[in-house]
Nucleic acid binder design. Sequence first.
DNA 1: AGCTTATGGCTAACAACGTTAGCCAACCCT
DNA 2: AGGGTTGGCTAACGTTGTTAGCCATAAGCT
Lengths: 187, 187
Amino acid sequence: MPRAGLDPAGVVAAGAALADEVGLANLTMGLLAERVGVRTPSLYKHVGGQEDLNRRIAVLAMDEAADAVGHAVQGYAGRDALAAAARAFRAFVLKHPGRYAATIGVEPSGPDDPLATAGQRLLDAFTAVLRGYDIAESDVDHALRTLRSLCHGFATLQAANGFQWSADIDDSFEWLIAFADRGLRAL
Amino acid sequence: MPRAGLDPAGVVAAGAALADEVGLANLTMGLLAERVGVRTPSLYKHVGGQEDLNRRIAVLAMDEAADAVGHAVQGYAGRDALAAAARAFRAFVLKHPGRYAATIGVEPSGPDDPLATAGQRLLDAFTAVLRGYDIAESDVDHALRTLRSLCHGFATLQAANGFQWSADIDDSFEWLIAFADRGLRAL
DNA sequence: AGCTTATGGCTAACAACGTTAGCCAACCCT
DNA sequence: AGGGTTGGCTAACGTTGTTAGCCATAAGCT
C-alpha cells in the first residue's frame, strides 16, 4: 500500500473544498476519503473525527475571511472602507458557503484556541472600519456586533436561498451598505 | 398495543419542543419517538421522514414568529414599532432556537407551499414596521431584506453563542435597534 | 547497509440512525 | 357483529461514523 502523502492540513483543505462543493451537511467522511484517495478509516490518522474536522475547517474559514476583509479594507476609510469590508465578506461567504457554514455554532474552548484568535483577526478587520466613524469607545463592541450580525445575516440568508422574492440581491446589498453607513454616522 | 393518540400536528409540536431543548442537530427520530411514547417506525405513520419533519417544524416556527412579531407591533409606529418587532423576533429565536434553526435552509417548493405563506406572514409583519418610515416603494424590498438580515444575524449569532467578548448583549441589541432606526430614517 | 521505530495506510467489525416491509390489534362505521 | 382503515409493533437493511488491530512503508540511528 503506497502512502498517499496526507497531512492534517491537506485533509482539512480538501474537506473545506468539498464542503463548498456539496454543502457542509453533505460532507461525509467517506466522500472526503474518496476525494483524497484513501479509505475512510485512514482519515482518523490526521483528524480526530467529524467534529474535529469541522472545527479545523472553521478555523481555516475564519482565517481566510479575516485575510479577505483585512486586505479589502486597506487604503480606504469611512464609507469606502465599510463598503469594501462588507463586499469582501459577502463575496467570501458566497464563494465558500460550505466552510463558512462550518463556523456557525462552534465555540472557542479558551482564549488560546486557534478558533478564538482567527475570530479575533476577523473582528479586528471590522474594528478598523469603525475607526473611520465617530463611535464612542464604549459603543465599539455594540457596533461590532451589529455589523457582524448584518453581514452574517445577509450572507447566510443568501447562501441558504432565503431571499425568495424578486428584487435584485446585489442592489439590496448596496442598499444595506448605505443603510449601515447612515446608522453608523448619524449619531 | 394501546393507541397513543398521535397525529401529525402533535408529532411536529413535540419535535419542535424537543429541538428547542436538545438542539436541532441532536433531534433524532428515536429521541422523538421516545418522547411521544412510541417506537421509532411508528412516527412514519404521521410524518414522511426527517426532512418532512424539519419542514413542518419550520412552518410552525414561521407561523409562531409571525404571530409574535405581528402582535408585538400592534399599536406602535415608527421607532417604537421597529423596537417592538425586533425585540419580539429576538425573544422568539432565543426561546425557540431549535425550531427557528429548522427554518434555515428550507426553500418553499412553490407559491402555495405552507412554508411560503408562513414566511410571507412574517414578512408582512416587518413590512408594517416600514410603513412608519419614509421608504420609497422601490426600496421596500431592500429594506426588508436588510432588516431581516439584521435580526436573523443577531439572533442566530447569539443563539449559537457567537458573541464571545464582554459587553452586555441586551445593551448591544438596544444599540442595534437605534442603529437600524437611524439607517431607516436618515434618507 | 541493516535494524528499529513510528507512521500511515488497510480490512473487519460495531454502534447509531433513518428508513422500509410486513404483521396485527384497535378503532370506526354501518 | 363484522369489515375496512388506521396506527401501533418487530424485523431487517443501508448508510455513516468510529474503533481495533494488522502490516508495509518511511525515517532515523548505529
